[in-house]
Amino acid sequence: MDRREAVQYISLLLGGTLVGANSFLTGCKTKNEVSYTFTDEDIAFLNEVGETILPATATPGAKAANVGEFMKVMVNDCYEEKDQKIFHEGITNLQNESEKKLKTSFMQATPEQRHDFLVALNKEQKDYTSGKKADDPAHYFRMMKELTLLGYFTSEIGHTQARRHVPVPGKYEGCIPYKKGDKAFT
């Protein structure tokens, strides 16, 4: 990112419209000590959560982009310890809530059940986030959703299949026609 882009990001951040890219700009404050570990089950679980947020449609979904593994890397390397704690407790929370509401584990639930469940959880997250003060802890599902979006759209699939990726455009055309349904350029 160069300054022009950074400046745009800052203005978007202050406008409060940006999800997912926050981790590029907001610094964290404390030293990272990995005190939480991700099991293979955790990663498989997070891939299913990600796939529910961004499922395969005409293009592959978040699971194909292995966002579960990406979440592990980001939480381990980039999150402050207090946020790591929230994230890991969130995995348990999400499973417990699923048992309570769906009467089945998230992994056992149907895609439709998972979808409806995460729609409700996302609403809870949004209500919480909009009312929270700056120093209040983040909501675990906001983290999962942000990392899913970031992980998916910065992945190879997110570039080359979900959108149109031209590594070397070679030219700039400032005004070309667009029709609804055309994918974005990366």
Binding site: V19, G20, T52, I53, L54, P55, T57, G61, R163, A184
Partner: peptide
Amino acid sequence: WSREIAELNIGGEFKDALS
């Protein structure tokens, strides 16, 4: 992709819209 879309938060339509 890093934008909010009102009414769309989870699912295939959301993903395709962000694409």
